[in-house]
Amino acid sequence: MEEKSVTGKFGRDLLRGSLDLMVLSVLAGERKYGYLIQKEVRAASGGRVELPAGTLYPLLHRLEDERLIKASWDDATGRERKWYELTAAGRKRLAAQAQEWADYAQCIRQLLGAARVEPAT
């Protein structure tokens, strides 16, 4: 609702559809806690996607609710943290979504190519 909730260099509408996928893909490796996920999304996107806590945590809780990720608490890092990891369903969803995004991007590229639309920059 507020403009600040997802900032970065992409349009808000464009981003909204892909936040879940971003988080799932960051979790594809080892388990991570919220702050780490935020940092990795920022780094992996070359600083172009910033996931504020106000967006990230509700999103994580929703994914947990949908059983795509599961969480556990421990203090392995010297601080009690909530760690998230993909479930089997999450892994399947990630693979399916990644495929769809690849197809989608390909399709858009073709459309833009056919229409001879050149990126502005």
């Binding site: 909730s5 504020p52 106000g54 945590y57 509700p58 809780h61 929703r62 609710d65």
Partner: peptide, 20 residues
């Protein structure tokens, strides 16, 4: 500041659990 206002954040969580 990066965290955003508490009210907005709380509302997100509350509506999340309500959706449930």
């Amino acid at each position: 500041a990066e965290f955003g206002d508490a009210a907005g954040l709380a509302a997100e969580f509350v509506s999340l659990s309500r959706n449930r």
